[in-house]
């Protein structure tokens, strides 16, 4: 199961980079980056999965005494949690820049924006 999820994550990363490299519309490129972002998060969570264990949250079904033998590693999950929040910040920044570019030239085609400074 974890291998299949990891393969799906890599395929999503490849699809996202293909879309970011072949589209000319700036918003399309940002959407493709979002897809690649989901793929990266999926690969990181699939790396930390261990077979036959459960989520690292302690409650009645998983008491604290036997937790070390029954829960998976929570460190990759904490990393991915941070990565999701930073990903939405990066997406918002890219959208703000695309809106500034659109206000300047009234177009979103990347080949029309050729200056080094604006």
């Amino acid at each position: 199961m974890a291998h299949l999820a990891m393969a799906t994550g890599f395929i999503l990363i490849l699809i996202g980079f293909y879309g970011a490299l072949t589209n000319r519309n700036i918003l399309r490129m940002i959407v493709a980056f979002t897809v690649a972002d989901s793929g990266v998060n999926l690969v990181l969570v699939a790396v930390g999965y261990m077979r036959g264990r459960t989520a690292p949250i302690l409650d009645n079904t998983v008491p604290a005494a036997e937790a070390a033998a029954r829960i998976i590693d929570p460190v990759p999950q904490a990393l991915v949690l941070t990565a999701i929040v930073i990903g939405v910040g990066v997406t918002a920044l890219m959208l703000a820049y695309s809106y500034k570019l659109y206000e300047k030239k009234r177009t979103l085609d990347i080949t029309k924006h050729t200056e080094l400074k604006w």
Partner: peptide
Amino acid sequence: LFLLLASPDVAMTEAAIGSGLTTFLFFFI
């Protein structure tokens, strides 16, 4: 899929931020 990989906290954050907030931001712009 995150929930199947035994990480419900990541699943919650992804459903709230990755799907809700990002879609809303894109449609706003």
